[in-house]
Simulated scan of single mutants.
Amino acid sequence: MSNAIPRLLEIFPAPTESRQKDWGDVERSLGDELPSDYKELIRLYGGSNWDDYLYVLEPGCPNENYDLIEWARNQTEDLEDLWEFEKKPAELEVEGARVIPWATTDNGECLYWLVRPRLRPDQWTVMVNEARGDRWEHFPVSCTQFLASSLSGELRSNILSSLFPRTPHEFRRLRAV
């Protein structure tokens, strides 16, 4: 998958202070390695809000409402319960396929990595699930490519708000509440 950090830096320059993580601890907690472009996104931008709509989750986020590890635990449980009553998206019917959340929106949509057997984290693609509904979309791009292409208007989701992205772009790092 393509690392679109250079495109994100063109769209919105990164804050001057970077955030360092012990990715080994994070990945042990999740039970999975994470994509390198996501790690770079967090180093540069941290847990963040884009255009007052999309929230990038961060492990150990200063705003505990957007902690990647907690979201991963909660979403795994919630989806297992949900799929007892609703059909899984076709992409998740493959044995061993699952999703890990990496972003959410102020409307409650959730953006996930699609994790498939035998694929390395840098090969994971993006799935979007509507809030309080069973519609899913699959995008064969990395998380940074999804974010950059969404912000530039090159990629459009039928699930995400039609008001996203905004012009001019807005960005803020998530802080403790």
Rank of each mutant, 00 (worst) to 15 (best):
S2R: 14
S2D: 13
S2V: 12
P6F: 01
P6D: 04
P6A: 01
P6Q: 00
L8E: 04
L9G: 03
L9A: 05
F12S: 13
P13H: 02
A14H: 07
P15S: 05
T16K: 12
T16S: 15
T16G: 11
S18E: 15
R19W: 05
Q20D: 13
W23K: 08
W23H: 03
G24H: 10
G24P: 09
D25P: 05
L30T: 11
D32E: 15
E33K: 12
E33N: 15
L34D: 04
P35L: 01
D37Q: 06
Y38W: 01
Y38L: 08
L41V: 04
L41S: 04
I42S: 03
L44Q: 08
N49H: 03
N49R: 09
N49F: 03
W50D: 09
W50P: 07
D51A: 05
Y55E: 10
V56Q: 03
V56H: 00
P62A: 02
N63R: 11
E64C: 01
E64Y: 12
N65R: 15
Y66P: 01
Y66F: 11
L68D: 09
L68C: 07
E70Q: 14
N74S: 14
Q75T: 14
Q75S: 12
E77N: 07
E77I: 14
L79R: 10
E80S: 06
D81H: 06
L82V: 08
L82W: 06
W83M: 08
E84S: 06
F85G: 11
K87A: 15
P89L: 13
L92D: 04
L92H: 01
A97L: 12
R98D: 13
I100F: 06
P101I: 03
W102M: 04
D106V: 02
D106W: 05
N107M: 09
E109Y: 00
W113E: 10
W113D: 07
L114A: 12
L114K: 04
L114C: 05
R118G: 11
P121K: 05
Q123S: 13
V126P: 01
V126S: 10
M127F: 04
M127S: 01
N129G: 14
E130M: 04
A131V: 05
R132F: 09
G133K: 00
D134K: 05
R135N: 13
H138M: 10
P140Q: 15
V141Q: 10
V141L: 08
S142G: 10
C143W: 02
C143L: 11
C143R: 01
C143N: 12
F146M: 05
S152Q: 12
G153C: 03
E154M: 08
L155E: 11
R156A: 11
R156D: 12
S157P: 00
I159K: 02
S162V: 03
L163H: 14
L163F: 13
T167I: 07
H169Y: 00
H169C: 10
E170V: 11
E170Y: 06
F171A: 07
R172C: 15
R173S: 14
R173L: 10
R173W: 00
R175W: 13
R175P: 02
